[in-house]
Simulated assay, not measured.
Amino acid sequence: MAIHIGKSLTRLLLGWLIGSLAGLSVGLAMGLWSWCRAIGDAAISSLYPIPKIALLPLFILWLGIGESSKITTIALGVFFPMAVSVCAAVDAAPRPFIRMAQSFGLDRMAIIVKVVLPSALPAMLACARITISTGLVLLVAAEMIGAQYGIGAYILAAGNIMDSEKLLAGVLVLSLLGTCAGAVIAALERTLLRWR
């Protein structure tokens, strides 16, 4: 079981980090510059509704059956909600605070760092809670389609031989992973949002 957990954790962390960082970057750009929003809105509106697991066979054709296709599926599933959430959070930054910062002579970068990002941080962390769950769902689905090791592959193998104990053990591990991830994000919230 340990090898399955290790493989799944590696895929989940890599996919979630890549998707979150990409979503954060795109969401910030969309929130700060109108021309980025014009491009980003069109792309996200057309691609977001597509079920990401439906793209896995395509990723397998393009990237092979190894780790890349699974990590890409997770990253893509995390990217879209993160980009949308960050864009909305940046757009909702309090205008009076921005105008006050401008009146004190802060430049654009200082306003982004000292006003916009702190006001958007709660929404970013809330989105992180959602996307880690999305990542877990996509991880299991991707491992069930084409993996030898991983919790999804473990659950699929247990289901094929009707081994209910192993099946429930796999589900319990997924639940524990989700709980641990939620606890880590809650700890980050307590640390980063002490000013609230």
Rank of each mutant, 00 (worst) to 15 (best):
A2R: 01
I3P: 01
H4Y: 00
T10Q: 09
T10S: 04
L12E: 00
L13E: 00
L17P: 01
I18Q: 02
I18K: 01
G19K: 07
S20K: 02
A22P: 02
A29Y: 01
M30W: 04
G31N: 01
W33A: 08
W33L: 05
W35K: 02
R37G: 05
A38W: 04
G40Y: 01
A42Q: 08
A42H: 08
I44M: 02
S45T: 12
S45A: 08
L47F: 08
L47I: 04
P51S: 09
P51Q: 02
P51W: 02
I53P: 00
I53F: 05
A54I: 08
L55G: 04
P57V: 11
W62M: 13
G64H: 06
I65Y: 04
E67R: 03
S68C: 00
S68P: 00
K70A: 06
I71G: 01
T72M: 02
A75V: 07
A75H: 07
L76T: 11
L76Q: 01
G77M: 05
G77I: 09
F79W: 06
F79K: 05
F80W: 13
A83D: 04
A83Y: 11
S85V: 07
S85K: 02
S85Y: 06
S85F: 01
V86K: 06
C87D: 08
A88N: 10
A88R: 12
D91P: 00
A92L: 07
A92Q: 10
A93C: 15
A93D: 02
R95I: 13
P96S: 03
S103T: 12
S103M: 10
F104T: 15
F104L: 14
F104H: 13
G105H: 06
R108W: 09
I111M: 14
I112R: 07
K114Q: 11
K114Y: 11
V115Y: 03
L117I: 15
S119T: 09
A120T: 10
L121D: 03
P122F: 07
A123P: 07
L125P: 09
A126F: 03
A126K: 03
A128H: 00
I130E: 09
I132F: 15
I132A: 11
G135P: 01
V137A: 10
A141D: 06
M144L: 12
M144K: 10
M144E: 08
A147H: 03
Q148G: 14
Y149R: 09
Y149G: 04
Y149L: 06
I151G: 03
I151T: 09
G152L: 05
Y154L: 15
Y154R: 12
I155Q: 12
A157R: 15
A157T: 14
G159F: 08
G159E: 09
N160V: 14
M162I: 15
S164A: 15
K166E: 13
K166A: 15
L168T: 14
A169N: 14
V171G: 08
V173P: 10
L174I: 15
S175V: 14
S175D: 10
L177K: 11
L177W: 14
G178D: 14
C180E: 07
G182W: 07
G182K: 12
A183T: 05
V184P: 05
I185Y: 05
A186G: 11
L188R: 08
L188Y: 07
L192P: 11
R194E: 10
R194P: 05
W195N: 03
R196D: 09
